[in-house]
Computed example of a mutant assay.
Amino acid sequence: MRPDERTGEEHDVHPVRVEEDLVAARHAVRAGAVAAGFSIVDQTKIVTAASELVRNAYIHGGGGTLTVGVVHDATGRVGLRLRVRDEGPGIADVEQAMTDGFSTGAGLGHGLGGTRRLVGDFHLESAPGRGTTVTVVRWKP
């Protein structure tokens, strides 16, 4: 990981352009979780969340980027932050997209809601024609 000149936080940026990038993204998130000292259960949860987010960016957003970074809160707690951005069509109804059972594809519709349950912090920004950015943090217990 390399330090961000603005914040001092460490992060890695990974493209999400072709199907092989989905596997590379999961490996990068697992490596970040291991480096941050996450347990195997917490590694699995953050990798599962990442998998869903990068898959959405690839399938629905036409590709994008994944940024992985270790963060610390004011108390010194350690977390792994993922930011997935795409420049796709955006999400017309974010509330509906977060509802379990809602899907615009062939999935079960547990993606974004399930991802939100796997992480501590979840923030989604999207607008029609402007793409989508999802930022999540899984905190180490």
Rank of each mutant, 00 (worst) to 15 (best):
E9S: 14
E10G: 15
R17Q: 14
V23L: 15
A24N: 11
R26W: 13
A28R: 00
A28Q: 06
A31H: 09
A31I: 10
V34L: 12
V41T: 12
V41L: 08
T44L: 05
K45S: 13
K45N: 11
S51G: 15
R55S: 15
N56A: 14
Y58S: 06
I59K: 13
I59R: 15
G61Y: 00
G62Q: 05
V68N: 03
G69F: 02
G69N: 06
V70A: 14
V70P: 04
T75P: 01
T75C: 08
L82F: 07
L82Q: 12
V84P: 01
R85N: 08
D86F: 01
I91W: 01
A92G: 07
Q96V: 04
A97I: 02
A97Y: 02
A97T: 05
M98E: 04
G101E: 10
F102W: 12
S103A: 12
S103T: 15
S103K: 06
A106V: 10
A106E: 14
G109A: 14
H110Y: 12
H110T: 12
T115P: 08
R117K: 09
V119Q: 05
L124E: 08
S126R: 02
A127V: 02
G129D: 04
G131E: 02
G131T: 07
T133E: 15
V134P: 00
V134D: 08
K140M: 05
